[in-house]
């Protein structure tokens, strides 16, 4: 008898994803779906899609979905959660959405301790609009709107969301992970599942920042993009748990 040890999770729709070859959104989608499967919550989960490359996530998850305006996903999620507190509500947002136009919604949903799960995909660039500077674009990084490299004297410095939110008392769990290697993907899987489990257990606001690639707008082959992430993003955005209110509990932080 053969056992299937790896396959598409049920919560991920059986449709082709529209992402570019090698785009890591697909990996992160799968990790989210695996968490939903593992916790058996598909029937009571509602996802909130944001604006950016991941806008079509509403077509990719088997659970009910709502598409939010740019940056407003945490506010929409707040409404969904307050309306149906037993439902599991997650948002899936990119860096432009969450860390630029939606900064207020991000900070204040954390401050309120909303019992929601936020998946924050940081690939240091605006993908959908064709590769402009993001709030998380690294110093010196070339984008369409920083053609000579991001000059911190002129365009400022990146926003570090996990570090920033770690100072917000209302937040429960903040972890930064990456999807550049199998080991890191497995860690990301644990973090995402934990961010959902926290909500199931009523523990409050959980956000997982996932360092991700954008091969197309970075102008790199998929494997080279992974390497670039490893060599440039991880040093600037160190991986790890930035906050875990329940770290001392059994099943808390690693």
């Amino acid at each position: 008898m053969a056992n299937t040890v790896f396959q598409k999770p049920h919560a991920l729709c059986d449709v082709p994803l529209h992402y570019c070859p090698g785009c890591t959104h697909g990996i992160i989608h799968r990790l989210v779906a695996e968490a939903i499967d593992a916790l058996g919550i598909e029937g009571r989960t509602v996802g909130v899609a944001s604006v950016g490359c991941s806008v079509f996530t509403y077509n990719y998850f088997e659970c009910d979905m709502v598409q939010a305006a740019h940056g407003r996903a945490p506010a929409v999620a707040t409404g969904l959660k307050r309306a149906e507190p037993n439902n599991i509500i997650f948002t899936y947002q990119g860096d432009g959405d969450l860390a630029a136009i939606g900064t207020a919604e991000t900070v204040h949903s954390a401050a309120r301790g909303e019992n929601i799960t936020i998946i924050f995909v940081n690939n240091a660039i605006y993908g959908m609009t064709g590769g402009q500077m993001a709030p998380t674009t690294l110093p010196g990084q070339v984008t369409q709107t920083t053609p000579y490299g991001r000059d911190p004297q002129y365009a400022g410095l990146p926003v570090k969301i996990c570090e920033m939110l770690s100072q917000v008392d209302g937040a429960t769990y903040l972890e930064r992970v990456a999807v550049d290697s199998v080991a890191h993907i497995n860690q990301a899987k644990r973090a995402i599942e934990k961010a959902f489990r926290n909500q199931v257990e009523g523990k409050g606001f959980s956000l997982v920042e996932v360092l991700s690639t954008c091969p197309t707008n970075w102008g790199k082959e998929p494997a080279a993009a992974m390497e670039w992430l490893r060599e440039n993003m991880i040093p600037y955005y160190p991986l790890g748990v930035y906050k875990d209110k329940y770290a001392d509990e059994k099943g808390g932080s690693k």
Partner: peptide, 20 residues
């Protein structure tokens, strides 16, 4: 709920209304 802005408030309305 006192939201952080008018924008957040109307988007919370969207969330509640989306839930019927």
């Amino acid at each position: 709920l006192q939201a952080e802005s008018e924008i957040a408030a109307i988007n919370m309305v969207i969330g509640v209304s989306s839930a019927g």
